[in-house]
């Protein structure tokens, strides 16, 4: 999670300079944030090789534009913004049909079981937990692109609404609308009913 914004302007400037100076050691940035970018790409694209390529591309772009980073947002949010844009462009770009294919509501590419097979706790994981993961995994596959992105940033990457808004270039209100719709859809698709609690 991103730290709270400092109250005084001087503190804010100092904080921004700290964030910008973080990029001087780019190897450390890659080591710290690669898992997050890769994980988000994987749950968005549902393809391991595409997720790895996207993460590479994300850090390459970050490295090229590191001089332009002013520290307005955290490095993490900045990287997620690049990743979100790459995923969006990849989905919309006709030349990258394989990305489009992997983001359709189909579990032919990477199933929840295949995902868990790579996990460190797959043998110990309870059947109920696996079922929960599988049901939400299936539910998110059929969400519209923006709703899915907001949902994944909130419930996988634990970003707050302001960070999600910054990463997606949306207002906080718009993010909230997408998140509520996504949650309503997921709640219905995991069998917890629709609308009011009964």
């Amino acid at each position: 999670m991103e730290s709270a914004t400092p109250a005084r302007p001087a503190d804010w400037v100092a904080s921004a300079m700290d964030r910008a100076s973080e990029l001087t050691n780019f190897d450390a940035v890659v080591a710290e944030y690669w898992p997050r970018v890769y994980r988000f790409a994987l749950v968005s694209l549902r393809d391991k090789s595409a997720a790895e390529s996207l993460a590479q591309d994300c850090f390459l772009r970050a490295w090229k534009s590191r001089d332009k980073f002013r520290g307005d947002a955290s490095v993490s949010t900045w990287l997620m913004q690049i990743a979100v844009n790459l995923i969006r462009d990849g989905i919309r770009n006709r030349r990258l049909q394989f990305w489009r294919r992997t983001t359709q509501a189909s579990l032919e590419d990477l199933t929840a079981n295949e995902l868990l097979a790579d996990g460190r706790s797959s043998p110990e994981k309870s059947a109920a937990a696996r079922q929960q993961l599988a049901s939400v995994w299936t539910a998110t596959a059929s969400l519209p692109e923006r709703q899915r992105t907001v949902f994944l940033l909130r419930f996988v990457e634990e970003m707050d609404l302001l960070e999600i808004a910054a990463a997606m270039g949306l207002s906080e209100g718009t993010v909230k609308v997408h998140l509520f719709r996504a949650l309503n859809a997921v709640r219905e698709r995991v069998g917890m009913g629709k609308g009011a609690v009964k």
Binding site: R39, E52, L60, W63, S121, Q132, S135, F155
Partner: peptide
């Protein structure tokens, strides 16, 4: 119950990607 489902999703994804290999970045 709903929060538990979402937490299970979060934990499952993090567990599954915990051992991800971080490649050497060569600019």
């Amino acid at each position: 119950r709903f929060e538990t489902v979402l937490a299970g999703f979060h934990d499952g994804i993090h567990d599954a990607t915990a051992s991800v290999r971080i490649p050497a970045f060569e600019p």
